[in-house]
């Protein structure tokens, strides 16, 4: 076969495409994705940066009604805007405490990973909070925390604590919202780990058992290494979820009390798109900063994935 095809090649001159087929084909497949990515991701990022240098109310074209202010918005954000500092700190709190969903999800997954009658039902019940809308989660927790009729104060009352107005206290409100966010996020991590646990090699566990490993040692040295892919995904979705937190804040406190639960994404919305927000440029500047923060994580994730793929090769 090889001989005949060689002969054919020799008899007929190769076309340009045929000669470069190997080099070109991947690009052909990539083109649609690249066009989409440029149009819907790269271009808007550039646009945001452009808008962030203008004082513009979003009404009428920016070329006519916008006023060029250079980097003044960034200067104000980083030096004088206390609301921005509060939002940034809250983002940090979200990033740190939202990660509790990972050990939480792992614990529940280990707990549920057994063969008992009706375990599927329990699993779906645990997964339930992730299925319902964030808005509903927010409402449920708003009632849960309510200082007059909420369950939360009823519970801590049993232990002799005074009632606390969680969402009305600027020091506690953010933690209250994060706790609400952890509810569905833990369920999400749980599902990731449950699927991961399905793929754990039973022979390795058997071997470890013969070697006398059990309990925490078994978990740490045998199970967890095999859960690494699930761990990575859980980490990625939780970090991104923390940075995207918006709906819970909007429904539970609307950024209040007095702006103490704002995060960057909510602040951006407030400044540029909400009822009283007409500062498109300022909002865009916040978006750019949020993007830079996300870029750190995205860069790290991409680096990790790149490394993994090289290892796999």
């Amino acid at each position: 076969m090889a001989e005949t095809s060689d002969m054919q090649h020799n008899t007929r001159p190769k076309g340009w495409y045929a000669r470069n087929e190997i080099a070109i084909t991947p690009w052909l497949f990539l083109i649609p994705a690249m066009i989409m990515f440029t149009l819907y991701v790269v271009w808007p990022i550039g646009q945001s940066f452009y808008i962030s240098m203008f004082k513009w109310d979003g009404l009428g074209p920016i070329s006519e009604t916008g006023e060029y202010v250079g980097l003044a918005h960034y200067e104000r954000l980083l030096t004088r805007d206390k609301a921005f500092t509060v939002s940034l700190w809250n983002n940090a709190k979200w990033l740190v405490f939202y990660l509790l969903a990972i050990p939480g999800g792992l614990f529940i997954a280990l707990f549920l990973n057994q063969t008992v009658g009706g375990i599927r039902l329990y699993k779906s019940l645990f997964f339930f909070p992730f299925v319902i809308s964030q808005i509903v989660v927010g409402l449920v927790f708003t009632w849960f925390y309510d200082p007059t009729f909420g369950l939360f104060n009823g519970i801590i009352g049993v232990f002799g604590f005074n009632p606390v107005n969680v969402l009305g206290d600027p020091k506690l409100a953010t933690y209250g919202i994060i706790a609400a966010g952890l509810w569905p996020q833990t369920a999400y991590c749980m599902i990731l780990y449950l699927t991961g646990l399905n793929a754990v090699d039973p022979e390795q566990i058997e071997a470890a058992r013969l070697d006398g490993a059990k309990g925490l040692k078994m978990l740490w040295f045998v199970i967890l290494p095999q859960l690494r892919p699930a761990m990575f995904i859980a980490f990625v979705v939780t970090i991104i979820g923390a940075l995207r937190s918006f709906d819970l804040i909007s429904i539970m406190t609307n950024g209040g009390p007095f702006g103490s639960t704002r995060v960057l994404s909510f602040y951006m919305f407030e400044k540029s798109l909400s009822e009283y927000g007409f500062k498109m440029g300022y909002g865009a500047a916040i978006a750019v900063i949020l993007f830079l923060i996300m870029l750190l994580f995205i860069g790290y994730f991409l680096f990790r994935m790149y490394q993994d793929e090289r290892e796999a090769r």
């Binding site: 009305g168 209040g256 009390p257 007095f258 702006g259 407030e270 909400s274 009822e275 009283y276 927000g277 007409f278 500062k279």
Partner: peptide
């Protein structure tokens, strides 16, 4: 208030007033 005062001012001021009341 929020119809007489400019939107940006109204938003910041109302937030301040809420804080003041607490």
């Amino acid at each position: 208030f929020d119809r007489d005062y400019p939107a940006e001012m109204a938003k910041a001021a109302m937030e301040g007033m809420q804080e003041f009341m607490v």
